[in-house]
Design a protein around this nucleic acid. Sequence first.
DNA 1: TTTTTATATTAGGCATACCTATTTTAACGA
DNA 2: TCGTTAAAATAGGTATGCCTAATATAAAAA
Lengths: 217, 217
Amino acid sequence: MATQSTEEYLEAIYKLGGEREPLAISVLAERLSVSSPSVSEMARKLAEQGLASYEPYKGVTLTAEGQARALAVIRRHRLWERFLTDTLGFSWDQVHDEACRLEHVTSPLVEERLAEFLETPQTCPHGHPMPTAQGKVTVEAARPLSALEPGQRGVVLWVPEEKVEMLQYLTALGLKPQATVQVEAVAPFQGPLTVRIGEAWHPLGWEVASQIMVRLL
Amino acid sequence: MATQSTEEYLEAIYKLGGEREPLAISVLAERLSVSSPSVSEMARKLAEQGLASYEPYKGVTLTAEGQARALAVIRRHRLWERFLTDTLGFSWDQVHDEACRLEHVTSPLVEERLAEFLETPQTCPHGHPMPTAQGKVTVEAARPLSALEPGQRGVVLWVPEEKVEMLQYLTALGLKPQATVQVEAVAPFQGPLTVRIGEAWHPLGWEVASQIMVRLL
DNA sequence: TTTTTATATTAGGCATACCTATTTTAACGA
DNA sequence: TCGTTAAAATAGGTATGCCTAATATAAAAA
Ligand SMILES: [Mn+2]
Ligand SMILES: [Mn+2]
Ligand SMILES: [Mn+2]
Ligand SMILES: [Mn+2]
């Protein structure tokens, strides 16, 4: 079985795009808060186990098997997040860390029953899509809120899930999945946007807006 | 924080009576399926951390702090068992191993919300008492079914929780917590009992009967 | 009291998953 | 083309939690 650490690497590689193209060691090291020698070493081990291909000085890429494992972990993570918010009443800024531990100790059987109990949710509380039990995931076409022109409207699809303070800020704004948002103005040079959420107008930093993914209406 | 392994040791020491009197290294090694040098080493480490007192060649005993930690782990274990049976529909023979992993990744906050969601259960599915969030546990006076005289009746209080095949057998017999059982006959020399459960008579090996704890009626 | 035996400890290793310090590589600009 | 530089690899080390083999202890039997 893959260790907890292995699963953490697989998940991170997948989320950083290493399921498509070689991912740099330093990027992974930054994300996982470990040194790059640690990542080099693990990259070699993942390759030995057939979960990744690794070319020194090139980067690391998941194999089909590695992708499947990564998606299984991500599915468990998102199912637990739904459980924690929907069933236990946690707020969406509290659930990532808890789910990050639970995801590694969840058997396929518990995963299956949990999904049934939750009525087969299609997204996590942050709007990210739920991989299927068969290891498929459908990612809806999306663009960052910061890419909208003044006057355009969008529906929020998903938001970053690991940034506690940002999630609390987004809660205050009402910027959550399914919310409709209209861009009123965009200041130049990646400056702040003015957005309408429901009946209220809010200034919104470009950095934040670029992390809110929306579907254009 | 205590590691998963540390928690496993604390739990085992507690359950084997090491919260009261020194527990032999070999007994712990047998229970945890590890070598006795591994146990000696961990006993020393637990003592260093103030979780146990350890006298070489004497045995290991939990400190007050060690007991509190053990009971916290046991509480989480039993809460997860209830969740798995009551909410996800698992049978009582499937839940021990799952709970044994979940118990180590459960924050106090999740523990609290889970207990609320389950409506503050007083026992696990096998009838063992639920320690309180404050680290207290009340163990009802009980005797093994094998200690009953012919003609005496009892209510099942708890059964062993880790033995999958035995739990399946007990399910077939209807021997579960709250069930009423009457001893009809006891063969000598720790021989089989004949017991009435509901309307049915069953022969029951002494070894099994000695592990079913009952309250005399 | 001495010997035997069961139990426990010590000694020495191994795998995992980290680390820092050092060396190597590859890419880029002069 | 040749240095410079940033990124990544290697070398060597640590803590945890296991292991087996050898040794020591304590209790029981002779
Ligand atoms: Mn995780
Ligand atoms: Mn999420
Ligand atoms: Mn456990
Ligand atoms: Mn139980």
